[in-house]
Computed example of a mutant assay.
Amino acid sequence: MASVFTAEERAAMKEHAQELRKPRKGKTDATRDVLARIAEMLPEDRALGERIHAIVTASVPELEPKLWYGMPAYARNGKLICFFQSAQKFNARYATLGFSDQANLDDGAMWPSAFALTTLTAADEARISDLVKRAAG
């Protein structure tokens, strides 16, 4: 029987299992891991990942960088708030900035929890900063 998961999905699950087995790291080591993962990305994704990391860490410095399924992510008290998924991660046509259910972005009965990214303008960066601040509550 063929696998239900793609090779990329299986790799992400293996990465997550490894992340869970590793001892908890301090913020400096975790930041180093996140920046190393961003450095491994293709140039387009790397540029977006670097900007997202800078925006998130400047907007809410108390968020803890971490790897989540091999992706750069940011948490508060161990609970994931947001993450950056490169386009190459799952062979997608665009990168994604996503928010978990822990993010305080509720707006009525329906709201976006992920945003497609192809480039970032100054206005986009300001919007991301606002979203991250709201998400972190």
Rank of each mutant, 00 (worst) to 15 (best):
M13W: 13
E8L: 12
W111I: 06
Y69F: 15
K14M: 10
L120T: 14
E19L: 02
T96H: 02
L105C: 02
L105S: 01
A12S: 13
I55R: 06
M13E: 14
A7F: 06
A87P: 00
L131S: 08
R76F: 07
H53R: 03
L48H: 01
P65H: 06
L42Y: 05
Q102D: 13
S59E: 14
V4Q: 13
A75T: 06
L117M: 10
A30I: 01
L120I: 12
R32I: 04
L63S: 04
L63Q: 07
S113H: 15
A7M: 07
E15Q: 15
R76Q: 13
M41R: 06
S3L: 07
A109M: 11
A87T: 00
P65F: 02
A58E: 14
A92M: 11
K79P: 00
P43F: 12
A7E: 15
V4G: 03
A116I: 07
C82P: 01
E44M: 06
D107E: 13
R76V: 09
E125I: 04
E50C: 01
I55M: 05
E64F: 11
A36E: 09
K27H: 04
A47F: 01
D124K: 11
L105A: 01
A47V: 04
I55V: 14
V4A: 12
P43R: 14
G98Y: 00
G26W: 05
S113N: 15
F115G: 02
F99Y: 15
L63G: 03
E19S: 03
L120M: 15
G108F: 04
A87V: 00
D124M: 12
E64Q: 12
Q102G: 06
A17G: 03
L97K: 06
H53E: 02
A36P: 00
I81T: 06
Y94C: 01
L42G: 09
A36T: 08
L42H: 10
K89A: 08
C82M: 04
S113F: 11
E8F: 04
E64P: 00
E15Y: 05
A135V: 10
K22D: 08
R32W: 01
W68L: 04
Q85G: 05
V60L: 12
A17L: 09
T119V: 05
V56D: 01
R37Q: 15
P43W: 13
L131Q: 10
K25H: 08
D101I: 09
A136S: 13
D106I: 10
G26Q: 07
